[in-house]
């Protein structure tokens, strides 16, 4: 079933919302882990792992009808 031909065209904000959120998480993760040790470092590493989790979710788990 082809959905995208009927899907309304997205605007730039809709297209880049997710990539920007993930990009910000990555930047924060990379920089905070460099500046801090301990708990804050662990939290920032989770931020850095989010893009990987997102990939796994969309690629292997989420189904498109």
């Amino acid at each position: 079933m082809v959905t995208h031909l009927f899907m309304q065209t997205k605007n730039l904000k809709q297209i880049f919302l997710w990539p920007i959120v993930l990009g910000l998480l990555s930047i924060i993760g990379l920089v905070v882990a460099l500046l801090e040790d301990g708990l804050l470092e662990d939290i920032s590493l989770i931020g850095l792992a989010v893009p990987i989790i997102v990939i796994a979710y969309f690629y292997y788990i989420k189904k498109y009808q």
Binding site: H4, F16, Y59, Y64
Partner: peptide
């Protein structure tokens, strides 16, 4: 990144056909 936009106009984020 610039080219990402025109190709994603009718696709949901993360949609793999």
């Amino acid at each position: 990144v610039v080219l990402y936009a025109p190709f994603m106009r009718r696709l949901a984020f993360g949609e793999i056909r």
